[in-house]
Design a protein around this nucleic acid. Structure first.
Length: 741
DNA sequence: AGCACGCCGACT
DNA sequence: GTCGGCGTGCTC
């Protein structure tokens, strides 16, 4: 009798599928089941990818040690999706399979649910002999409140020893019950008054705008068609995309299929989940990395058991074990947070599209500022294209003023942070009791400290970046490796005694606003103030109930939240980010500005915005101020085409790390040369030292592979790495990079 | 990623 | 003499 040979993905980066023999005494191993297998000198947890494989021709085959799951753990389609991810993003299949599982499952643990012991009177309790006072009290308690958990009994003053004794004498029985660790409860989703409470949900029966109605009708037809399609929904901020999602999801679940909703970041999951929860009740699950392991496990298994119709989550939720998926919504599809910056470096939106194809489902990408990729796919007819051009209630978009800071500097000195115009607008809001948001996408108080004698700036000893001054902490900090130190009395280079600050961040803005408007209630939101879980939600709640006049923050404040009393959006330095050596710098700036300008005027009062910049003529700033997506798209696509960047070309970015820049460059050059040989029709650009050539004491060189055939390009890189296996550990291959810095 | 093997520096 | 530093190579 021939024994079963299976193909297994193991969690080793860059390692392909391996074959193992299943001894017949272990039973049958199905696709998607986890197995523990010997690998070299250790034992790892792998996932069965092919239950009928063949023996390897150049390696000894070893036996599976254990079949962890007697039936598939990952649904077969999710296995296929993970294999696609592993191959497309040049990672190992095992790494991709691992991210499709909850963390404990990855380690090979069998699923563990939390249980409670519920105590009840046994049948014999009434007739039982009289006992001591403590036991009688315990029995009385259970008579009034049967089913109390052991923990609750203790809280009521009944000792564990007393209960144990009653159980031993057969007077009380304990019943074990599974309790679900509920992320909705810990996120406050169902609590009245919380930001994402049920009452905050828009009304199910509210009339849609004519545009919403037309778009919804079209999407319903497509979802009902039962075959794959991707649609881009381009809707201006405040046009009611979410309401379209909710009603489309209703149509899909009514038809017996399920819905996956992806959001770019954890902070938005409870908000969106709350809206779906209000409409769909308990058949909604959340998946994101901010959940505790227990919560994640329980949500995952609810989905796996088919108890859930709608999953809301961040990028890894694209692997949710949901069956019969009919619709995948990717909200804010342009957002960079969809890209995972570790292996496997997948893009949640693109994987969602592949999954939609596997599931014969509709993928709906929504954004007010679609990525260049999605917009050009829509224009070329690869995606269907739908637009919402008007805001609900026909609210006007904010009236935007652009302030040229060069003039401001000329008039008032180069240390000006708030222009006269912005200060005047702020004052008006404060007088009228309206709210303002101020965006500056840079943390800290001063961005550089330099020596007035020799001009040297204080650099991080581990990274090639300047240290940022944080005033409250009275320290200077590296934003890449978190190195921190007190500001020295003298310059380390020349001994000069005069160290000067320059540049500004959110902390400085807060300082300026408080100084200028002492009675204003000011809140600041950035990674320095929002370290604890729930801190962001708390501040946003304060803003929501009107306890804050001016909200200052980094890009965190630009996303998703709907504050009707905000009538002024200010951008302190719109060009932060434009100077980055990244081909997406303009796109990011345009998206961020559009988003923050969309914060103003969502209520009955119209909105105003002030954009401060040193480059008032830059097309990204002009287009954002004019809220003209098409103008930006045309200009940016022209730029991408002329310099051969996505979406005009496919791009793979290869980083090579080393203990010296010379070493990194030499190795990168060797690799690039090999790639060039394997890929004669594509282009290889570089290598060059990375823009940040040193991070955490590691030097980095990089090169680009450009071309039209991604598969050939990726294979060329992989073949080069096969020839230099010693470089594998120090090389990062990023297919379709979002950031190339 | 582990883990072992292997070949050079400061110590019981 | 060896304990251990991390470079290199392998994993069905």
């Amino acid at each position: 009798l021939p024994s079963q040979i299976i193909s297994v993905g193991v969690p080793v980066p860059g390692l392909g599928l391996l074959s193992y023999r299943v001894p017949s005494r272990l039973g049958e191993a199905f696709k998607g089941a986890r197995v523990s297998v010997p690998l070299g000198h250790r034992v790892v947890t792998g996932c069965v990818v092919d239950p009928c494989a063949s023996a390897p021709d150049n390696a000894e085959i070893r036996d599976v040690l254990q079949i962890i799951d007697p039936e598939p753990f990952l649904p077969p389609r999710v296995v296929d999706l993970a294999l696609w991810v592993g191959a497309y993003y040049a990672a190992g299949p095992g790494d991709a399979l691992a991210i499709a599982m909850p963390p404990a499952a990855r380690r090979g643990e069998r699923s563990a649910f939390r249980t409670v012991q519920r105590a009840e009177l046994a049948g014999a309790a009434q007739a039982g002999p009289p006992r001591g006072a403590r036991q009688r009290a315990a029995l009385d308690l259970l008579r009034i409140r049967p089913g109390l958990t052991l923990q609750e009994c203790v809280r009521q003053g009944v000792g564990v020893a007393t209960m144990r004794s009653l159980v031993r004498h057969g007077l009380v029985t304990l019943r074990e019950e599974i309790v679900e660790r509920d992320p909705f409860a810990s996120a406050g989703v169902d609590q009245p008054g919380s930001l994402w409470s049920v009452e905050a949900a828009p009304d199910d029966r509210r009339a849609l705008t004519a545009e919403q109605t037309a778009v919804l009708r079209q999407l319903r037809d497509w979802a009902a068609a039962g075959h794959y399609r991707t649609a881009l929904l381009h809707g201006v901020t405040g046009s009611g995309k979410t309401e379209v999602y909710l009603r489309l999801a209703r149509a899909v679940t009514d038809a017996g299929r399920r819905v996956l909703v992806l959001v770019p970041e954890i902070g938005l999951t409870p908000v969106v989940a709350g809206l779906f929860r209000a409409r769909f009740g308990l058949r909604v699950a959340i998946q994101h990395s901010g959940l505790s392991e227990g919560e994640r496990h329980d949500q995952w298994h609810r989905i796996r058991r088919g108890e859930v119709d709608i999953v809301v989550g961040t990028r890894s939720a694209v692997f949710a074990p949901l069956e019969r998926v009919g619709l995948i919504i990717v909200d804010e599809e342009h957002d960079a947070a969809y890209k995972q910056e570790e292996t496997p470096r997948y893009h949640g939106r693109d994987v969602a599209i592949v999954r939609a194809r596997l599931e014969a489902a509709l993928a709906l990408l929504g954004s007010a500022t679609p990525s260049l990729e999605s917009a050009s796919n829509a224009r070329r007819g690869r995606y269907a294209h739908l637009v919402l051009t008007r805001r609900i209630f026909d609210r006007p978009l904010a009236d935007v003023e652009v302030v040229d800071m060069r003039r401001e500097y000329a008039a008032h000195g180069a240390d000006v942070v708030l222009s006269e115009r912005l200060a005047a607008r702020l004052e008006e809001r404060l007088e009228r009791g309206e709210q303002s948001v101020l965006l500056l996408n840079r943390r800290g108080f001063a961005s550089v400290i330099f020596c007035r004698q020799c001009g040297a700036s204080l650099e991080c000893p581990h990274c090639s970046v300047a240290l940022t001054y944080h005033r409250a902490a009275r320290r200077m900090r590296c934003h890449y490796c978190n190195y921190a130190a007190a500001v020295p009395a003298r310059c380390g280079a020349c001994g000069g005694e005069y160290l000067e600050q320059s540049g500004f961040g959110t902390e400085r803005i807060e300082h300026e606003v408080r100084a200028r408007f002492p009675t204003a209630r000011v809140a600041r939101v950035d990674r320095d103030t929002i370290r604890r879980r729930g801190a962001l939600a708390r501040v946003l709640r304060e803003v929501g109930r009107g306890a804050v006049d001016v909200l200052i923050g980094t890009q965190m404040i630009a996303k998703g939240h709907d504050f009707p009393a905000v009538t002024l959006a200010g951008v302190i330095a719109a060009d932060v980010g434009l100077g980055l050596a990244d081909f997406r710098a303009a796109e990011r700036t345009f998206q961020l500005l559009t988003q923050v300008l969309g914060r103003a005027g969502r209520g009955d009062a119209p909105g105003q915005a002030v954009v401060q910049t040193l480059y008032p003529d830059h097309y990204a700033i002009r287009a954002a101020a004019a809220q003209d997506y098409d103008a930006f798209f045309r200009r940016e696509l022209e730029f991408r085409s002329s310099l051969h960047y996505p979406p005009a070309t496919a791009l793979i970015n290869v980083f090579v790390k080393g203990r010296s820049l010379e070493r990194a460059m030499a190795d990168a050059l060797d690799l690039a040369t090999r790639v060039r040989q394997h890929q004669p029709q594509g282009r290889v650009i570089g290598p060059a030292p990375a823009a940040l050539s040193k991070i955490k004491d590691e030097y980095r060189a990089q090169f680009f592979v450009k071309g039209s055939r991604r598969t050939a390009m990726r294979e060329a890189v992989q073949r080069a790495l096969e020839e230099r296996p010693d470089l594998r550990r120090r090389t990062v291959v990023d297919v379709d990079p979002i950031s190339v810095i």
